[in-house]
Design a protein around this nucleic acid. Structure first.
Lengths: 222, 222
DNA sequence: ACGAGCTAGTGTAAATATTACACTAAACTT
DNA sequence: AAGTTTAGTGTAATATTTACACTAGCTCGT
């Protein structure tokens, strides 16, 4: 069966940059391609948007199909449309980024045998297509949003300590923060609350556990 | 001639929200549609992306063809892809916004007899397709960027007075600013310089004319 | 049981940035 | 010369941000 049009139409895909924090650094999820072009190269999860499907829906469907990741924060990033970015035909990609707490990082088992792996962002392998540019754009966006939104919370599980939260900010901002000033600031924002629980963890004083007041929302702050 | 594919492909368009400042308010440029669907409704300038054409190029080409506007600040906004947003076929729109100083606002004469008009943003007519949502998204983006970038300069001609600059900020931010504090702030930013010229304009003290240090660039500030 | 080692948790003072506010300057008109 | 209009300027009060050092409470080894 063929689908025909009066004028040439591009293909439209969504690609998703899935970020997590692991090994004290920002990581992205990549898939090793099984097919040409760029066979055996690493690439972003993603694929063609169904003809009756919303872009957001397409992105989260692809994410689930290829990496088994669901229910995470997903936001449209930018649309990449250089005419020659795919050697087969004109392909326009609506890029998304997703943020996932490290605990959920068991997606690798999923998928049809394709190799799926986390890579530290300052140690990426060569990527297929223009995916490097997409990843770079996504990283810039996340760093920028860390400064004026509650996006960093999306990297944490439901309960977390203030030290863990500070660690996430430090990794995203690539700078060290003062512990007392950070705590003063985050408490003044009024976006976390104590759970009453504590976490005993190693041979030192246990830490209070907090949770986000609006864990599903990213608010603009400041 | 027909163009056929193994799988259905959406059409891809660019639509551009062209902003200016006139009559003391933010205005957008609209075109009255000559054809169905939404015949005689107002809509954003825009059109199909050529198959070999970059998205940015397509947007500025459409802008020039339909409104005769060229050489302005143009930035990708967001991609709108609801499956039913066009009744004819699946159409995905990569929306852009453009900023143009009021002096250049002679685009109306252009175009193939189509009616082209500026509308105040708080007095928009009903728009075709989902163009209202696109305009709203663009307005939010501009307001937000006014706070942390030099985007406001794009609404001014090459030479301008500090009072004019303040007026642009006030319109975009929808709030009044203190004259002395504004001047202190803008001079501390170090992004304008005196031209040495003055403008005599009405029965009062003439104002010094300034120009932007990097008129073609939008910098992140603060 | 106590000391070593570790991370959690806390306050204050100095420096910096932001806000509020009112008059003089220079042109034009009558 | 007086009236009107916008341009242009500084200072003091307030709020925000930064820098900085010790005690609390757990585990482990002796």
């Amino acid at each position: 069966m063929k689908f025909c049009y009066e004028y040439p139409h591009p293909a439209v895909t969504t690609d998703i940059v899935v970020f997590t924090i692991g090994d004290q650094c920002l990581q992205a999820l990549l898939i090793k391609r099984n097919n040409e072009p760029f066979k055996d190269k690493w690439a972003l999860p993603g694929g063609f948007v169904d003809i009756d499907e919303d872009l957001d829906t397409g992105a989260s469907r692809e994410l689930e199909e290829e990496t088994n990741v669901t229910g995470v924060y997903l936001e449209q990033l930018y649309t990449f449309g250089q005419p020659d970015r795919d050697p087969r035909e004109r392909v326009i990609t609506v890029a998304y980024y997703a943020l996932i707490p490290p605990e959920k990082l068991t997606p690798v088992a999923a998928s049809d045998a394709a190799e799926v792996k986390w890579f530290a962002l300052d140690n990426l392998p060569p990527l297929a297509f223009d995916h490097r540019a997409i990843v770079d754009t996504a990283q810039q966006r996340i760093s920028a949003k860390t400064r004026y939104s509650t996006i960093a919370f999306q990297f944490l599980p439901e309960r977390f300590t203030l030290s863990e939260l500070q660690g996430v900010f430090e990794i995203l901002l690539r700078e060290n923060l003062d512990k007392r000033n950070f705590r003063k600031w985050i408490l003044a924002l009024n976006c976390v609350e104590e759970t009453g629980e504590i976490r005993r963890n190693g041979q030192h004083r246990p830490a209070k556990l907090y949770c986000a007041k609006n864990p599903d929302r990213v608010d603009i702050i400041k």
